[in-house]
Amino acid sequence: MSQSPYISGSTSVSVIMLKVLLALVPGIVAYVWVFGGGVLVSLTLASITALVSEGVMLKLRNRPVRPFLMDGSALVTAWLLALALPPLAPWWLVVVGTLFAIVIAKQLYGGLGYNPFNPAMVGYAVLLISFPVIMTQWPAPLALAHAQLGFADQLHYIFSRGLPVDVQVDAITSATPLDYLKTQLKLQHALADISQAPVFGVVGAKGGELVTGAYLLGGLYLLQQRIVTWHIPVAFLAMLALVAGASSLLDPVHYAGAGFHLFSGASMLCAFFIATDPISGPTTPKGKLLFAAGIGLLTWLIRTYGGYPDGVAFAVLFMNICVPLIDAYTQPRVFGHKL
């Protein structure tokens, strides 16, 4: 028999991952409500690709396949990536992104527990750089679209890019508010005018804010279940709100406010689901605060001044690079040691 301790608690990796998946469900429901059922196809595609590629890689690496497929981490990556992609993204985009995330960003580093970068965000960033046009082509929320696509039409569109004869691409897509804001500000329009555009909702994107709210709900569930600690969500959201709020106070004509930043793009998804990935994040409490605040600041910088509409993916990847250093320099005081 082994050494002590002989007893152990009840959590396990798969329970943690399952709870994360569960927490994503409200967001997915809201997503379907706002953008139609197309996202379910992406989710399914990504899940299958993730599981198959993970299984194949484990087999190739001569590692036990079952426990690692059952742990649910591949599914979490797949879901996060699928939710970050535009809802009607072509099928191959989803597959390529997931493959990159699982095979390159995760398995080549040794699989679960060893990946220094957030796999979903690696997949996302690779797609964004390689296929910028498709990646920024977001379908309009159903309520705003000039033409409605049924589920069958969406399916058809995803797999063959084919549209019903009477519908043009422009009719179903629209710029996201983040994108729209950026281009309009470049054209010297005032913020107050810009935010009158139909894509804007109460605080963030029309429809999008509902999805974001649902993510927040799921995030609160994770906090309550102690799957994530408060440090990362709070530091990220606070930092983002702080810089956005301060800049919009100083110059309300050119800078969007805190509410807008919190409720558009991938802010909430990042705060509770992406930045909180334990494997690629820091472990010390102070380190978590620093890490998340860094993501918040970079996200705002890239959104406001950078070349991409949303900065979450790059911000997360950049801070991932800093994690070993952050961990090394934020070691908490050990019992009996002076600070």
């Binding site: 959590t11 396990s12 990796v13 943690i16 426990p67 690692f68 742990d71 981490s73 040794g110 699989g111 679960l112 527990g113 060893y114 600690t229 334990p278 494997i279 994040g281 472990t283 010390t284 961990d327 070691q331 908490p332 005081r333 050990v334 019992f335 009996g336």
Partner: peptide
Amino acid sequence: AMPCIRCARCADACPVNLQ
């Protein structure tokens, strides 16, 4: 044992505040 996922539950439980 599964690989460590760096969830830091151990750090939260450590009475000596180690990592």
